[in-house]
Amino acid sequence: MWTFVHKMGSPPWFYRFATIVIRWLLPTVLLALLAGSVWGLLYAPPDFRQGNSYRIIYIHVPAAVVALAGYYVMAIAGLVSLVWKIKMADTAMRAVAPVGAALTFVALVTGAIWGKPTWGAWWVWDARITSMLILFFLYLGVMALFEAYDDKAAAAKACAVLSLVGTVNIPIIYKSVDWWYSLHQPASIKFTGESAIDASMLYPLLLMIGAFYGLFALLVLLNMKAELLGTHRQSAWLRSELR
């Protein structure tokens, strides 16, 4: 276990590891996304109240779930980089931010499109959409802070501190926005007990959530590889790897 962790901290080992994982993950993720979309779009029954517009749930909810989880991944990478000073954790944190921001963006846009047939307006200050918007701002803040520093090692440390502060704040923000808008729908997926949505709708949703987690991992690994190519261009191991 620990040797694996130590190996993860070594750029050459990680580069090879990422190459192998990407080779498997890329087709799997694309296939799962395609299968989940077709299942959700064509085979799942329509919602009895919202009709067919609810099919947006199969991208909206996975994007939102993974975007929120992504912030925690970023903060954990930041913590690892601050405490153990592992360079690869910096790279990981840097790679997560744009992916998380893109997924938050997807969740916001699909939420807005879903809102039009459901509520009759493109934008409603619903608790969940508002929380998503604030999460988007948090991602943008981390990215802006990284860009503002000329010294990228200092930038990574600063972003680590900021994302940890954000992590402490996120539950408070979500809770406060919930109270602010107390008329929100109750959370509809529960993994224990009776589920509020029917199995024929739930299974494609779970598949899509899994696919989005895979997509997140894939995009982060791709970004990290690109980053390693940039920062280690003088290293012998990279030259022999590319040969």
Binding site: L41, I56, V106, I113, W114, L222
Partner: peptide, 23 residues
């Protein structure tokens, strides 16, 4: 999709676009 087609397809289209760009 009983009138909801443009919304659903626009949402899936934009998502696909973002995913392709990110890849």
């Amino acid at each position: 999709m009983e009138g909801h087609g443009p919304y659903v397809w626009a949402a899936y289209g934009i998502t696909a676009l973002v995913i392709i760009l990110m890849l």
